[in-house]
């Protein structure tokens, strides 16, 4: 076959492949693009309490700047995000190390370690709501049986964010651990053999070898958890609905209430697009960090 004929065949194959995959590509792009474009459009509309719609220009975004609830929601979202992510990364790495070194741990114990994140968040939320009930829950019973004072947990404006962060960390730390465990298993054994020959202590080995080599994996886990944590909704909605007062009113909860309880879909869209921009910002920042720590 001549070169020209081969090129023509290749071009034809490419065209055929493009034609065959086009419907799926168009469908997927439309499914992603339509809701985004529609939400952007809604963000420029205003809806009265009776559902009457009119063009509002940038009014929803200028309202956002002076809306105390928005800034408060942003603060709660960030506080919850930072606290939860820190807990999940620290305990996730620790759990991964335990699972990596305890090779003789029975399968059932390993499964139990990672089971929380397989539980639907609504079920987890309901379960913790019962456990943390200040009057009827097991948590205060346990505290008091050790002579410790009871806590209001989710009913305390001071403790609600740490408590929600603990619930989310209980559920998602095993997920981080699984990712980190994958990273641990792929580390080159030769580096450890060299360290052993040099007489490095286990702590030094962890500090100087394991942690730096694991950083890209940890950053990947952080990116995945960041997206989820900034969109955090279900557990808060089940356990506190943003309360007490507005102490756990994240941007997501606030946007949901504005949209579906007060029917102002336009302002809710503006709120959610702002949150989306924040999520993108966080992901981009972590991506840069991942580039910096890659080896």
């Amino acid at each position: 076959m001549s070169d020209t004929a081969a090129t023509l065949t290749q071009d034809r194959q490419k065209l055929e492949m493009a034609a065959l995959s086009a419907p799926a590509v168009i469908f997927t792009v439309a499914m992603i693009a339509f809701p985004v474009v529609y939400t952007i459009w809604l963000g420029f509309q205003t809806f009265s309490s009776t559902g009457k719609q009119s063009f509002a220009g940038l009014a929803n975004y200028s309202r956002l700047v002076v809306d105390y609830e928005f800034w408060h929601g942003l603060w709660v979202t960030i506080a919850l995000y930072v606290l939860s992510l820190a807990l999940q990364i620290v305990f996730g790495v620790w759990l991964a190390l335990v699972l990596f070194h305890a090779k003789r741990l029975p399968g059932i114990v390993r499964s139990l370690f990672i089971s929380p994140f397989m539980m639907p968040p609504v079920v987890a939320g309901m379960m913790w709501l019962v456990i943390l009930d200040p009057s009827l829950g097991a948590a205060n019973y346990i505290l008091q049986s050790f002579g410790l004072p009871p806590s209001d947990w989710l009913a305390s404006p001071t403790w609600v964010i740490p408590t929600v962060a603990l619930i989310d960390s209980w559920q998602w730390t095993p997920y981080v651990a699984l990712i980190v465990l994958g990273g641990l298993q792929s580390l080159p054994p030769s580096v450890y053999e060299a360290a052993q020959i040099d007489g490095a202590s286990p702590l030094k080995t962890f500090q100087r070898i394991t942690l730096p080599l694991l950083l890209p994996t940890i950053v990947t886990a952080a990116i995945l958890r960041s997206v989820d944590l900034l969109r955090f909704f279900d557990i808060i909605y089940i356990t506190t609905q943003g309360g007490p007062g507005n102490a756990s009113n994240t941007l997501n909860i606030y946007g949901f209430r504005v949209g579906f309880e007060f029917f102002n879909i336009g302002y809710a869209s503006a709120l959610m697009l702002t949150l989306t921009a924040i999520v993108f910002g966080a992901v981009l920042a972590f991506n840069r960090l991942r580039g910096a720590v890659a080896w």
């Binding site: 200040p134 009827l136 009913a155 305390s156």
Partner: peptide, 21 residues
């Protein structure tokens, strides 16, 4: 009222009363 009453709606109230507390 019970501790944590700021999170109480009908579910918690009925559970508390039914349990005799």
């Amino acid at each position: 009222g019970p501790p944590g009453v700021v999170n109480y709606s009908f579910q918690q109230i009925s559970a508390l009363y039914r349990s005799g507390r």
